[in-house]
Design a protein around this nucleic acid. Structure first.
Length: 1153
RNA sequence: CCGGAUGUGGUGAAAUUGGUAGACACGUCAGACUUAGGAUCUGAUGCCGUAAGGUGUGGGGGUUCGAGUCCCUCCAUCCGGACCA
């Protein structure tokens, strides 16, 4: 009876399917264990041998845990939305759902052949409405939430609104724009649109404006990897940055919790490091510098811009309405005072209800930088007081003095009030008089709302080493501070920067920049610091401006050297004048009040000082940006959002799933919008809005006409929560019942590649945290342990082609190094392409004349020899080709020797290890291997290759060894001639020892995911049992259970064979335990492997010289005596006594001479 | 440039805490059985050397009775990130 793996595997796969043995219940008294593979995208290319590596590892572990008595969840499904299917649809007109379904069918059949224990009843597919209904639902939760920094959790927008109504936003710094501040009164005065705009700045899923890669020629938006060198990958058309409305996830709010959570999960240090770097937390300070600059030339003509723009531009549309409102409805007291102050009555121009920053002051004299407030009774309200305090601080920071009067004072003593105002005004210097002085107030002159230069630095301690400032070319200040003399140079530079692609900026390390003409003032010593513009400062990070400290920062140093900016040394001998030294351990010099302090300690001193002075704040910064969450594509989840009058309203949950419409074309919409924008029926689709929105909209006039969102969600939307859906995949009422998620909890083991280190893994961690904060699940980290599988690389094969160039007769030159015998060269009537064997010496000699040509690996045998006949037929059937090695020529199907020596009629290719991919012709299809060797062999060989985490090249050769092992195992049970050979005899001690040694070894290897050593453990066991001629059921049955996770089919078959005879040891399995899947894992018993003696290695001075068999319970003196009596030891001692004898019980003996 | 990982026979690799380096396989060589061998089995196989012996885990240095393993330093390869103040 032979090992007929084809029949066996087919039979058991069918049987397992029929009995539903892989179905996992959500209720069980067994402990749970959740094993998950990273969500595959079902690509059209199908699987190659690299893909199942992780699945096999997780399958083995799942089966192992099941045998160990766990209720194991091990599901599989498809991340089915994505670009490739969309591209295929554009190219072939086939609906992505159709091609995706076909890919899935193929994928599934490939997986099935390998014999995985997935519970297919739990299969999910992100592109099916039943699934993406819940993706949309979660999006709505994100949209309806904000991150409360006070509690450190996501909370409902409604809670935020009620806080706004009570106290404005004084307790909720706006994450979208920290300068947005308003009181409860102001909030209430905002109209619907203003309120919604403000809320949008808080939502965890929000809409903003972002830059996309827009390709005019293709009329579409391209992904980053579709843009190569500033042009489109397909077609090579120019790509520009275009601003489009985009959805984002406010993941930055979770930066700290994402960092903190890393301490609680078992990811590799490398992985944690990557995530930490990506989040990029740094702490330092934001410091404001006043800017000094010669006055602008007075504006000419009619269109004089308003002279005093003090409002914060981003909020202007909100505050303006509010100010107008207030001007129209002044309080009684405000009117009284206004009548006394208007028209220069106080000697200066006074304005009322004027916007400064995001605040509205009652009265202001801009020339004197003085504000006047009239307090009503409500200012006793604590929240309003808090708001007033913030405002006073802000105004003070801006250089304003504030006068405050009560309503009573104004009503009853208005003349005294006016007198006081006049006094104060005349006391203060006018800003016009101080324009040239370094004391100029940042809000003065014509600085048009851009008064200060705010920089972010991690090194405030270097404040006295600042020799220049650098602002990003995109910085708002650029146009406002450039001087007339520098204007042309600045404009030219900006043009130059715009002309450069991001790639160029990164690739070339050119030092470029331009001086603005303006100076910042060092707040501590009044030094004038020139302000430069350079592309090395990024607009998106920190404040888009830096204080440059050349002696301590390499880039600053190079910049200073390049432009000849004098360098201040604040670290004495630590700076050598040649290159910057970024140390924190130097003692500061030339640094005023921090002289003599170690830099590390000075950081806090300076931050405290600037905070006292009100010119800066301690600040934590993150590299991480909010995650873009929309795509201008068709094949993704539609957003359940309707736009009405510029406001985004969520749809009612009853509208979910909001299904993708059928389209005729997958072409992008106008202006880079997604294909959905082409469908009027989509845009105008009648939908029900969420309840509150519905009533708000109707209260505004009930115009429910609007437009459905035309963006779709990105690929990672569905994969950010899929691990939850597996727990409760058929639930139509919830994304996952709390009961199910509480039972299954975290994914205990997550296996997948490193390529998702920062994308998927961060996003799904964030989603989990939000869902946890909102109370939908009970844990805030999705994956307890992560194992990264290495990549299986392919081995590509190359041959060498001779480049003809202009030389029509290369033969002579090329053949020169070979001793060619006269008349042996073939006579060619027309030009041929010449290929040279990898071992040809000519290649070394004329290296430049050759180019490498990739050939499919199936034409190369294991010795590296190319099957030329097949290669020519496949690849060069239309070409005239000649193949040459060092002594022979292959032409027209025949080899002939061209040298005196006998022909060596082989043609070799050069192997190279590369990524496995279709384009490299180096893929190996698992289906072929499974049909040739069987799934069990394939599974074990993938594991045998090496540690799962490690990348390694695929080499099909070794699979024979594993196959041989399974056949050898089979022969312990059945002989080809004799048939059944297994028996029920009592096992010997030696046999039991092999078994228990193996139990221990396999169990330990499996526990630590060392599946390669697990496989070799089985090989050793089978080799040893073969040597012992052991065919005993008592030994073989437990061995099969050990093997079942690795090679389930053969284990099940042999187990069934053994069980046709009543077992001696009683029933090992549980209810319905006929299958080995339900068997109980054998218990290791130390007594069977106990030894009484050991073959000790005997070393002399640490070098092994001999071994001796010594009893394990021998004492040190006994051992010393034995060892010194040994001939080899005696020889080395040469009669002298040893200095020392080291004896480690059970390990070794070392004699020191 | 920064960060991470990895360097062990011809190849994939093993060596759980510092204790017999190369287990287990592939490949190669020799042999057996065979009409045949791309089946199966047996033996050999790190390198140098006939041998005794020497030498050997990327290079150099260190700690130790003893280092693939710990420390320092340099080099190479691969993978990420890109000017993050």
């Amino acid at each position: 009876m032979e090992y007929n793996f084809r029949d066996i595997e087919k039979k058991w796969q069918q049987q397992w399917r029929d009995t539903g043995i892989y179905r996992v219940p959500n209720e069980s008294n067994k402990p749970k264990y959740y094993v998950l593979d990273m969500f595959p995208y079902p690509s059209g290319a199908g699987l190659h041998v690299g893909h199942p590596l992780g699945y096999i590892a997780s399958d083995i572990y799942s089966r192992y845990k099941r045998l160990k008595g766990f209720n194991v969840l091990h599901p599989m499904g498809y991340d089915a939305f994505g670009l490739p299917a969309e591209q295929y649809a554009i190219d072939h007109g086939i609906h992505p759902a159709v091609s995706t379904a076909a890919n899935i069918t193929n994928f599934r059949s490939q997986l099935d052949k390998i014999g995985f224990c997935f519970d297919w009843d739990r299969e999910v597919n992100t592109s099916q409405p039943g699934y993406y209904k819940w993706t949309q639902w979660i999006f709505l939760q994100l949209f309806d939430s904000f991150y409360n920094r006070k509690t450190g959790k996501a909370e409902r927008i409604q809670a935020l609104i009620s806080d706004f109504e009570k106290e404005g936003n004084s307790n909720h710094v706006c994450p979208g724009d920290a300068s947005i501040r308003f009181s409860a009164t102001e909030w209430k005065a905002f109209d619907e649109k203003q309120q919604m705009d403000v809320l949008m700045q808080y939502r965890l899923a929000y809409c903003g404006v972002g830059e996309v890669n827009w390709c005019e020629a293709l009329g579409t938006v391209l992904a980053n990897d579709e843009v190569v060198n500033g042009v489109s990958e397909r077609g090579g058309y120019p790509v520009v940055k275009k601003k489009l409305r985009q959805w984002y996830l406010r993941i930055t709010e979770y930066a700290d919790r994402l960092l903190e959570g890393l301490d609680r999960i078992e990811f590799s240090e490398a992985m944690k490091e990557m995530q930490t770097n990506w989040i990029g937390k740094s702490s330092g300070a934001e410091i404001d510098f006043r800017i000094q600059r010669p006055p602008l030339t007075p504006p000419k003509g009619e269109d004089t811009p308003p002279k005093y723009q003090t409002a914060q531009p981003s909020l202007y549309n909100i505050t303006k309405r509010l100010a107008e409102e207030k001007r129209k409805n002044p309080t009684h007291e405000e009117m009284i005072l206004w009548e006394k102050l208007r028209n220069h009555q106080a000697g200066f121009h006074i304005r009322r209800q004027h916007i400064i920053g995001s605040y509205i002051v009652d009265f202001v004299c801009l020339q004197k930088m003085m504000t006047i407030e009239v307090d009503g009774g409500y200012h006793n309200d604590p929240e309003v007081q808090l708001y007033d305090k913030a405002r006073t601080e802000f105004l003070k920071e801006q250089g304003f003095t504030e006068l405050r009067f009560t309503n009573d004072e104004v009503r009853n003593h208005v003349e005294t009030v006016v007198k006081k105002i006049k006094e104060e005004l005349s006391k203060k210097e006018s800003i016009s008089k101080r324009l040239d002085s370094p004391e100029v107030s940042p809000l003065g002159g014509d600085l048009e709302g851009a008064p200060i230069l705010r920089v972010y630095t991690t090194r405030p301690d270097t404040i006295f080493g600042v020799d220049f400032m650098v602002i990003a070319p995109e910085h708002d200040l650029v146009d406002k501070i450039k001087t007339a003399e520098q204007a042309t140079a600045v404009d030219e530079y900006i043009t130059y920067v715009k002309s450069r692609s991001e790639r160029e900026r990164m690739a070339e390390k050119k030092i470029t920049g331009v001086f603005t003409g303006a100076y910042a003032i060092n707040p501590f010593d009044g030094r004038e610091i020139p302000i430069w513009i350079s592309e090395y400062v990024l607009a998106g990070y920190g404040t888009g401006a830096i204080m440059a400290v050349p002696c301590g920062d390499e880039r600053d140093h190079k910049f200073a050297q390049h432009f000849g900016i004098p360098i201040t040394n604040i670290i004495g001998k630590h700076y050598n004048g040649e290159e910057a030294n970024p140390t924190k351990d130097a003692v500061l010099e030339n640094s005023d009040f921090i002289n003599g302090i170690v830099m590390r300690d000075a950081i806090d001193v300076v931050i405290n000082r600037i905070e006292e002075m009100g010119i800066g704040v301690r600040k934590v910064n993150y590299k991480m940006r909010d995650a873009a969450f929309s795509r201008q594509r068709y094949w993704g989840e539609p957003f359940p959002i309707k736009w009405i009058n510029g406001i985004a309203y969520p749809l009612d949950e009853s509208e979910l799933p909001l299904e993708l419409p059928q389209v005729d074309s997958y072409k992008p919409g106008p202006e880079g919008e997604g294909p959905l924008a082409n469908i009027p029926a989509w845009i105008h689709k009648k939908v029900k809005l969420a309840k509150e929105s519905e009533s708000e909209v109707s209260s505004l006039g009930g115009d429910l006409e609007g437009a459905l969102e035309t963006n779709t969600m990105p690929g990672y939307a569905g994969s950010s929560w899929y691990f939850l859906r597996y727990m409760d995949p058929q639930n139509e009422k919830e994304f996952c019942s709390r009961k199910a998620s509480d039972y299954w909890g975290q994914v205990d083991l997550y296996i997948g590649g490193t390529e998702h280190a920062v994308g998927h893994l961060l996003y799904s961690r964030m989603w989990t945290k939000v869902l946890c904060d909102l109370g939908y699940i009970g844990h805030d980290e999705p994956y307890k342990k992560l194992v990264n599988q290495g990549m299986i690389q392919g081995v590509s094969q190359y041959i060498y082609r001779y480049q003809f160039n202009d030389d029509p007769l290369p033969m002579k030159r090329i053949t020169n190094p070979i001793a060619v015998m006269e008349g042996h060269w073939p006579t060619l009537s027309e030009p041929h392409t010449w290929f040279y064997s990898a071992d040809s010496k000519i290649i070394d000699v004329y290296a430049n004349a050759f180019s490498k040509v990739i050939i499919p690996i199936e034409f190369v045998n294991h010795k590296g020899e190319v099957d030329l006949a097949r290669l020519i037929k496949y690849k060069f059937s239309d070409d005239k080709v000649v193949f040459v090695n060092d002594s022979s020529v292959y032409l027209d199907g025949n080899w002939s020797s061209v040298s005196g020596i006998e022909g060596n009629f082989v043609f070799k290719s050069t192997p190279e290890v590369e990524k496995m991919s279709k384009s490299k012709f180096n893929t190996v299809n698992p289906d072929d291997l499974v049909s040739k060797y069987g799934a069990d062999t394939f599974r074990m060989y993938e594991m045998f290759l090496g540690p799962v985490e490690m990348s390694k090249p695929w080499d099909t050769k070794g699979i024979e060894g594993v196959h041989r092992f399974l056949k050898k195992l089979w022969r312990l049970f059945f002989d080809e001639v004799k048939g059944k050979v297994w028996n029920e005899e009592k096992a010997t001690d030696a046999e039991l020892k092999v078994l228990h040694k193996t139990i221990k070894q396999i169990e330990e290897a499996t526990e630590r995911f060392s599946f390669n050593t697990g496989v070799s453990g089985f090989m050793i066991a089978v080799n040893e049992l073969t040597d012992l001629k052991c065919h005993k059921k008592e030994i073989l049955e437990p061995l099969l259970i050990l093997l079942a996770p690795y090679a389930p089919h053969i284990a099940e078959e042999l187990y069934a064979q053994l069980r046709q005879v009543p077992s001696l040891g009683g029933d090992l399995g549980e209810a319905g335990g006929a299958s080995i899947l339900n068997a109980r894992y054998p218990r290791f018993e130390a007594k069977y492997v106990a030894e009484s003696s050991k073959e000790y290695p005997i070393s002399i001075n640490g070098k092994l010289r001999t071994t001796m068999n010594i009893a394990l319970d021998a004492s040190q003196p006994e051992v010393e005596k034995l060892v010194l009596d040994n001939d080899v030891v005696k020889k080395w001692l040469e009669g002298k006594p040893p200095k020392k004898i080291i004896f480690v019980k059970g390990k070794m003996v070392n004699v020191v001479i």
